[in-house]
Amino acid sequence: MPTLTPRPAGAVVDTWRALLAGPWRRAMPVPLRRSRFLVALYAVAEIADTTSQMRSDGEGLAVLLGRACATSPDTAARYLTAAALAGALTEHTPGHYALDTTADPDWTAALAHLVSGPEDT
């Protein structure tokens, strides 16, 4: 029987998950809701620690996220950039992201970024 791994918990992570499951998902354009981008956002919440920071422990964050949502590291990096453009993530330094509980992300900016690149949305 598989063991359950505990999810990271904390005020920011829990708030971010609640926003993603509720108002943010409803506000997303349909192409984002039906793509792996939404899966990647849920995976981001699993990667983040209790202080909302995402650390990769020696691996690149895109590699870790790509493995978590079954996509290539290049596509995962595009998802991270798209989420940062929307305002759901904050990039403090290049490659170091944190969850952001912005009340109204600009999901159209994320969609525009994803459709301007390779077609693996």
Rank of each mutant, 00 (worst) to 15 (best):
P73H: 03
G60F: 07
M54I: 15
S72W: 07
G60D: 08
L114C: 14
A109H: 03
D49H: 11
D120N: 10
L89M: 06
T81V: 10
M54H: 02
L85S: 08
A27D: 06
T5F: 12
A68V: 04
L89V: 05
L64M: 05
T3I: 14
A82E: 00
R34G: 15
A103I: 02
A84W: 00
L85D: 10
A83N: 00
A83T: 00
P105C: 12
S56G: 14
P94M: 05
S52G: 15
A43Y: 06
A62H: 04
Y42D: 14
L64K: 00
F37K: 03
L80M: 05
T51F: 14
W107H: 09
T50I: 12
A45Y: 03
L61Y: 01
V44T: 12
S116G: 15
W24G: 13
W107C: 12
P94A: 13
V39E: 12
P31L: 06
L4I: 13
T71W: 03
P8I: 07
A112K: 04
T90M: 07
Y97T: 03
L114T: 10
G10I: 10
A45W: 05
W24T: 13
V115Y: 02
A103F: 01
S52D: 14
V63M: 07
A83M: 00
A98V: 11
A103V: 07
P6Q: 14
T5D: 09
A21M: 04
E46F: 09
M28D: 04
L38G: 11
P118N: 11
R17G: 08
E59Y: 07
R34D: 14
Y97D: 06
S52W: 11
T108Q: 13
D57V: 06
A77M: 01
G66E: 01
A68M: 05
H113T: 09
Y97R: 02
P29D: 04
D104P: 04
L114E: 06
P73M: 08
R7N: 14
T15M: 07
V44E: 03
P29T: 06
A109P: 04
Q53W: 07
L64S: 00
A110Y: 03
T15V: 09
W107R: 02
M28Q: 02
P94C: 07
R26M: 09
A70E: 13
E91T: 02
R17T: 08
T75Y: 00
L89K: 04
P2H: 11
L32Y: 01
L4V: 13
G95Q: 01
S72R: 09
A98Y: 08
D100M: 08
T81Y: 05
H113Q: 10
V30R: 00
L41F: 12
R25P: 08
T50E: 15
H96M: 08
T71N: 13
P23C: 09
R78I: 00
S56Q: 08
G87H: 07
Y42W: 14
P118E: 12
A83Y: 01
E91I: 02
G22R: 00
T108W: 11
